[in-house]
Amino acid sequence: MKLIDHSRVLNHMKPRVSFNIFFRSLFLLATLFGLLVLGILLYRIISQGLPYFNFQFLQNLPSRNPEQAGVYTALIGSIWLMAVVAPVSLILGVGTAIFLEEYAKKNAITTFIQINISNLAGVPSIVFGLLGLTVFVRAFALGSSVLAAGLTMSLLVLPVIIVASQEAIRSVPKELRHASYGLGATKWQTILRVVLPAAIPGILTGGILALSRAIGETAPLVVLGLPLFLAFLPRSVFDIFTVLPMQIFNWTSRPQEEFQALAAAGIMVLLILLLLLNTIAVLIRNRYQRRY
């Protein structure tokens, strides 16, 4: 005798099963939506910018004539910015991470610093611009220089580097430290020669992520008063300069079609730069990452 009537069970299950299939497709569609938008975005930019994207575009100065305009000053400016942000943010970020992970005792001050860092990560970038304007541009009288922009951007990306470095340092196993202490090494020797080398892939990956954030950021630099249009290069960190996102912003806000196409070409340069940075990050991670 059959206690379970299969057809009845199936009948009863049917709406629930089809419900499941329906929602599964819906969820899949939602996931694909993001990928689709990314595809459209890239296609639009490449199809619009390609006619202007050539070697000359990289070498030309900005110009009122779209045929002769280029990104030379902005591209070099972005590289100057990276040259300031990379060392400053790495030293501050890794130093903070080492302090919090290796030296700090679990007390109120440490907790406060930690909470402060996560709150800092949530502050809108334009507010950092206001800080930079008041402190670096006006109080330190640096003007809209490479140094003022670089310091502002370093503070902006600091939380990213700190959190990444903390995770990297935390993932170095205790055994390595103990072995080092056992051989008579001091705490700083252990950190410098054992912990940091083991944590370096994670730290560098975080650093490159932070750097890509810094070169794509526009809002704080507008507040700092960087020019949208500049026909000469900075000679030192105290000179005025402009960066790729500012140049793109300038072209985007003009109504003519040609300038919009130039903006697309500028975006291509920026995205290629970002792609390069992220490829380096992935390579570092794959080359040096060890699992303990």
Binding site: L35, V37, L41, I45, T252, I267, L270
Partner: peptide, 24 residues
């Protein structure tokens, strides 16, 4: 495969999104 691609969306500079909003 999908998660890293989605995260690319988060890494695109906002000025690029601004261009996308205005022109597309």
């Amino acid at each position: 495969i999908i998660k890293p691609i989605l995260e690319v969306l988060a890494g695109i500079p906002t000025i690029v999104y601004g261009y996308f909003a205005l022109t597309f």
